[in-house]
């Protein structure tokens, strides 16, 4: 006899069996335990029942299959209907999340909980700070397992937005992760968001790839220095190079403003062998030189990338060489036209 079938508390419910259709494809041979619990879930959902026992039932199903979005959503609606303790739910969700690293649904569930909880703490800065700290602590635990977990980071961005965590503490917490692994691109991405979407100074709705005139110069300078310091640790790490380009774009600054810095990693003498310590520096310089109209130098940098330092991307580098020439011709023609 099944768990629910023999339980007097569930006497009033007639489970609804699963209709898989005839000769169903990829039919799963459920355990009796799972099949029974799902039968009861279908029945309570059909009756739109939101009760304590539904919380027990959904917890039971989630322990067998945490990737069940229907169960999670029904559980959330039950919690809200019952006005159940959200903080208690959060701490239970923590355990489920630690056991199910790759799960999508948990993080959306968590957002629904926080959305629900927020109005009750929104007027109390202390409560918000306390809550933010405990959330960050939990995420740190998750990052110990996988510091690049996409769902955790997406949740983190949500939390920063929701609780207005565009703070020094948030930046420090990212720096801690980068000190452990300077190649953690998720941390770099998060930093970009926290710095350039800060409502204190950024233009609302400014796209990540566009110039935002409202970002103060000192912020741009600080971020340039931050990416440079990281680059010196490991020049072939692409994350800070991408970050630097992103910062310069946001600040409306030319790449050529960083020519000297990129030049630290690239020595191309007139005669003799070049010394390249970062292919990303060479890529950066190719753009700097194109920007400055030094087409031949830029072309040589791209040639070196395609033939020597990043050969798997040769087609890409060759395409860049082609666009360089097209631009060169267009510029040349423009000059000819001006001359006439």
């Amino acid at each position: 006899m099944g768990k629910y079938e023999g339980d007097p508390e569930w006497d009033d419910v007639v489970p609804i069996p699963q209709d898989d259709g005839e000769g169903a494809l990829a039919q799963i041979a459920y355990t009796d335990e799972y099949a029974e619990a799902m039968g009861y879930l279908r029945a309570v959902m059909a009756a739109k029942e939101h009760s304590e026992r539904v919380l027990d039932l959904t917890e039971h199903i989630i322990s067998m299959n945490a990737a069940h979005y229907t169960v999670w959503l029904y559980r959330a609606s039950t919690i809200f209907a019952l006005n159940a303790d959200v903080e208690q739910e959060l701490s239970w969700v923590n355990d489920v999340a630690l056991d199910n690293q790759k799960n999508y649904q948990i993080w959306h569930h968590r957002q629904l909980l926080v959305d629900h909880l927020y109005p009750s703490i929104s007027s109390d800065p202390n409560a918000i700070r306390k809550f933010a700290e405990s959330e960050v602590d939990f995420m740190t635990q998750m990052f110990d397992e996988d510091a690049k977990n996409y769902h955790v980071w997406s949740y983190r961005q949500y939390l920063v937005r929701k609780l207005n965590l565009f703070t020094e503490a948030e930046l420090k917490s990212i720096e801690t992760l980068l000190r452990i692994d300077v190649r953690n691109n998720s941390a770099w991405s998060h930093r970009f968001y926290v710095v350039f979407s800060d409502p204190k100074y950024s233009t609302p709705g400014s796209h990540a790839t566009e110039y935002d005139p409202k970002i103060p110069d000192e912020i741009i300078d600080r971020e340039i220095e931050f990416s440079k310091a990281a680059t010196f640790e490991a020049p072939q790490n692409q994350s800070p190079w991408n970050y630097l380009r992103g910062v310069l774009r946001k600040g409306g600054r030319k790449l050529s403003s960083q020519e000297c810095f990129a030049g630290e990693f690239v020595k191309i003498p007139e005669n003799g062998e070049e010394d390249i310590r970062s292919s990303h520096a060479l890529d950066f310089l190719a753009d700097v030189w194109a920007e400055e109209g030094k087409v031949e130098k830029a072309d040589e940098a791209l040639r070196l990338l395609g033939d020597k330092y990043d050969r798997i991307r040769k087609n890409y580098w060759d395409w860049r060489r082609g666009t360089l020439k097209e631009e060169g011709i267009t510029k040349g023609l423009a000059k000819v036209e001006l001359a006439h």
């Binding site: 494809l25 990829a26 799972y34 067998m64 299959n65």
Partner: peptide, 24 residues
């Protein structure tokens, strides 16, 4: 084989099973 009956551990795919029809 992926479209034939699947053993119990596939319960984790219970909410994403339609993908398996498409992938196969």
């Amino acid at each position: 084989k992926s479209l034939k009956k699947l053993p119990a551990p596939y319960v984790a795919a219970d909410a994403s099973r339609p993908w398996m029809f498409y992938w196969a």
